[in-house]
């Protein structure tokens, strides 16, 4: 029964979210024809005991994809930020989006 603080909507129940998998791999450029790099992206996953970045989709909320850092042992949500952002995590705080 996770609670995830969406940067846009605030703290919400897990039922509003869809799990989107590992967020620690970056999709190769589309023009990259190297099967190995694509295979790395699609198939090879770290399975850390501890902090792990993963995508969650606020499916029933603002429909934004979020990059959630979660502790896989305690389920503690350490940070949440929009998937499109690459700067510092928002630490679960509400942000103004104007």
């Amino acid at each position: 029964m996770l609670r995830i603080t969406c940067p846009y909507c605030g703290e919400r129940d897990y039922v509003e979210f869809g799990y989107g998998g590992d967020a620690e791999n970056t999709m190769p450029e589309l023009s990259d024809t190297d099967i190995g790099r694509w295979a790395d992206y699609v198939f090879f996953r770290n399975d850390p005991k501890g902090e792990h970045a993963e995508f969650w989709h606020h499916q029933h909320g603002c429909r934004q994809w979020l990059r959630v850092v979660r502790n896989t042992v305690t389920h503690e949500v350490i940070s949440v930020r929009p998937a499109s952002e690459t700067d510092a995590p928002t630490q679960g705080k509400q942000v103004e989006v104007a």
Binding site: G20, T26, M27, Q59, R63, Q64, W65, A83, S84
Partner: peptide, 13 residues
């Protein structure tokens, strides 16, 4: 729908 949003918001921003 989720797939398209995923692509636009994560890979092809």
């Amino acid at each position: 729908m989720s797939h398209l949003e995923y692509l636009l918001q994560t890979a092809w921003t």
